[in-house]
Design a protein around this nucleic acid. Sequence first.
RNA 1: CGGGGCGUAGCGCAGCCUGGUAGCGCGCGUGCUUUGGGAGCACGAAGCCGCCGGUUCAAGUCCGGCCGCCCCGACCA
Length: 479
Amino acid sequence: MVQQREAASALPKRSENFSEWYTQVALRAELADYTPVRGSMAIRPYGYAIWEGIQGYLDRRFKETGHVSAYFPLLIPESLLQKEAEHVEGFAPQVAWVTHGGQEELAERLAVRPTSEAIILPMYAKWIQSYRDLPVLLLQWNSVVRWEKATRLFLRTAEFLWHEGHTAHRTMEDADAECRLILGIYRELIEDVLAIPVLSGVKPPSERFAGADNTYTLEALMPDGQAIQAGTSHFLGQNFAKAFDVKFLDSDNQEKYIWSTSWAVTTRLIGSLIMAHGDDKGLILPPRIAPFQVVIVPILGRDDAVVLPAAKALATRLAARYRVKLDDRDAYTAGWKFNEWELRGAPLRVEIGPRDVAGGHVVVSRRTGGKKETLSTTGVDDAIGRMLEEIQGELLTRGKTYLDGHTTAAASLDNLVRAVEEVKGFVRVGWCGKQSCEDTIRDRTGASPRVIPLDDQPSGTCPVCGMASKHSVYYARAY
RNA sequence: CGGGGCGUAGCGCAGCCUGGUAGCGCGCGUGCUUUGGGAGCACGAAGCCGCCGGUUCAAGUCCGGCCGCCCCGACCA
């Protein structure tokens, strides 16, 4: 009977069925749930708290660097969406359309935004007259809709949350610097806060954002060997400026088009977070993003009159320095709570029972697998801070070791094919720059070119045509 | 978009082959005993068996159509 119950509550093993493990963790840790809306999920409070953590960090960094938030319409007239040819071609298959207002058919249908360049650039045309109006550094926190056929919780949903930055600059150099600045902020979020190491660089032309001249990207590697795009920053050149006629008068009295950028990270990061750190017990959240860094579980039942006040006092004291949850629900046993908070990824658990109160200590347990430690109640405050930082560092180190161990180089097409199969990670090759050679590699390996590193250095020859390489490219299978 | 699987109580499933009163486990409610690694006992509530149609005296079960979801592959944050 006990066995049945354990079987009923056990997660799939991460190593045996990664996909099912992922879905079960997202559901059972109460990050998200399916809804009656096809392809669209509900983000539950615990999952949303992670998103709020991401928002809080980025909002501070954006504002430090001179950006401000604004808001633009959800619905975009079709004629605007069609102004930038590559842009509309790239997004057309995924756009949801509003065709009626009440009972009346609209004269012009409205796109539910898949991204907002087409509604923001026309506003910039109204607002920008002079070089003195530049740069414009706006972003909006919102959701967008892309009519996806195959969806996964967080990783691909028909509607998803993100922010989208849209900036306008006087010169090409300014716009490019903006892209790099944002990429750096994203990298710090993902590596320093989420503890997921990434490769930084640019996309080859085939993988660029529709309408961009250059796309900067951060690529992470998931435990199943698939790469995931974790953040992008697009150099749009003057493509959108010309399409939407956004011009300014420069100091030389010449009328010029602005240089624009756009950039985003999405709730997909939460999916990456689940995959990157989780284990057979469930989620593991890096302390800097965990909604609850410390969960206090009082051992109730024998001496509640003593244990509960002690637990509450400890929670109050620790809450001044850390994000603390006191789990004093009396409907669940301590053992049940231990398992639940492991499933939900809390980095540290503090147990406090009659024996601890009597002895003036508490028991602290790490989610990352360390044994339980008994620490004096008075000294636990600083120790917790140290342990949280250790866990944060441990997760990043673990991720770097994995990334390094699954990144190789190949000099020939055969080696590349074999490496993609066997290493299940990134494989670096030289590239001559021809699309046909890239296509050959895609066909032979099932992998796509993920990133050309920022410190791009040609290496050897193109494995397909044998000509001298102009770039090095990291290939991987991808989400 | 191709291949596979599944829709029966909140969740996980059995029942369908061979038609005849709707079942099990978990969860949920009440009470008592419990509580340091997913507690025990007792009582109880809860179902248009995905939807539509057909066959039949009779359909969860047989036949046809539709809808939805999941998994695995190709493309997109």
